[in-house]
């Protein structure tokens, strides 16, 4: 189990989200960065669907109450163990009593912590994700705070074998981090000005030509009231050819809706299930990982992508993840 000594800005337990209940208006939730979440789990031989801890900008202080294996992926928030900086995107074996802390955000916005065996919390509507506004899921429906103890499940037999072996070989220090990491193309870099690819929205044709033009040719800044529900972007005003009242319809992860003030909102993990504002575009699923690592104040540009190309890219990403999973799982079998 792990003990939370300090909660951090917003530290929540998330998995891949609540599926099948949106027809009842239940918010999907789940991780903001599904790629980093999947990789964190793969690096500790968990299932991709196991819950991880999503850490936002100012990280928590966490003490490991047992020897365990963990991995950190996503944004770099200067993690260290007992004061010594540690590397991300690789498995780390840590001894009982060691303390994981975070420092200043170097790049990206959200770090994912996976512990071999996963975190034990009860499922609500088929998911372990925390939805703060309704107070459901995750750890008592809320963000982790000082004094919380989160139980960790049984890790895989291969992890157990590796941990035994490693702790015998090296006794110095409170942790051992693996020398190896993922291939370079599997580790994203997060920049303060980035671009994401956009598929045309269902109502893109309702926007005037000037708006379509500025949308793809200007940078938009993430405002400070961006959160897990959505990124509110500031930039040139977008407008419809003529005012139009729309009926509410489903929205999804990455839908970009434009309310009457002309400033786009990009809907994220805690988005509402339906919305009535026109959607100018939709962030390609493969680029949601980039999107969710954007910090308030940073800049975003939009590039157009066709639906076919977006689905093709999605398949490429799946293949890459599958490949990484197989090679890492082999490492665990043969000894990390």
């Amino acid at each position: 189990m792990i003990w939370i000594e300090k909660g951090g800005l917003q530290t929540t337990i998330q998995d891949l989200g609540r599926r099948g209940f949106q027809k009842y208006g239940v918010i999907a939730s789940g991780v903001m960065d599904p790629y980093a979440h999947r990789l964190a789990n793969i690096l500790v031989d968990n299932k991709e669907t196991d819950p991880t801890i999503e850490i936002t900008l100012m990280g928590p202080h966490i003490t490991f109450q047992n020897d365990c294996l963990f991995a950190l992926t996503g944004g770099d928030l200067s993690p260290s163990i007992d004061g010594l900086p540690i590397k991300m995107w690789r498995p780390i074996v840590v001894k009982k009593g060691s303390k994981l802390t975070f420092g200043k955000p170097v790049s990206g916005c959200r770090t994912y912590l996976a512990v071999a065996g996963g975190f034990i919390v009860s499922e609500v509507m088929g998911s372990k994700s925390t939805y703060l506004r309704a107070g459901i899921g995750g750890f008592e429906g809320r963000a982790l705070q000082k004094g919380d103890v989160v139980q960790v499940g049984e890790c895989s037999q291969y992890v157990k074998g590796n941990m035994k072996h490693l702790s015998k070989n090296e006794n110095k220090g409170s942790f051992i981090q693996m020398e190896w990491t993922l291939m370079a193309k599997a580790i994203p870099t997060y920049r303060p000005e980035t671009s994401v690819r956009i598929i045309d929205g269902r109502q893109a044709h309702l926007f005037n030509e000037k708006s379509k033009d500025v949308f793809f040719n200007h940078a938009f800044q993430a405002s400070s009231d961006s959160d897990r529900m959505g990124y509110r972007m500031k930039g040139p005003q977008l407008a419809l050819k003529e005012p139009k009242e729309l009926l509410s319809e489903a929205v999804s992860f990455g839908s970009i809706q434009v309310p009457p003030d002309g400033q786009p909102i990009i809907l994220m993990a805690d988005r509402q299930t339906t919305g009535g504002y026109p959607k100018i575009g939709q962030v390609a699923t493969v680029d949601l990982q980039k999107m969710s690592q954007l910090k308030p104040g940073e800049y975003l540009r939009f590039e157009r992508i066709s639906l076919e190309e977006a689905q093709h890219e999605l398949m490429k990403e799946r293949k890459l993840i599958e490949q990484l999973k197989q090679s890492i799982s082999l490492k665990f079998k043969e000894g990390i």
Binding site: I199, R202, E249, A250, V251, S252, F253, G254, S255, K279, Q282, V283, A284, T285, L307, A310, Q311, L314
Partner: peptide, 10 residues
């Protein structure tokens, strides 16, 4: 029928 992003159809 029309797409809503790359994982949904309306």
């Amino acid at each position: 029928f029309s797409p809503l992003g790359d994982e949904a159809i309306v």
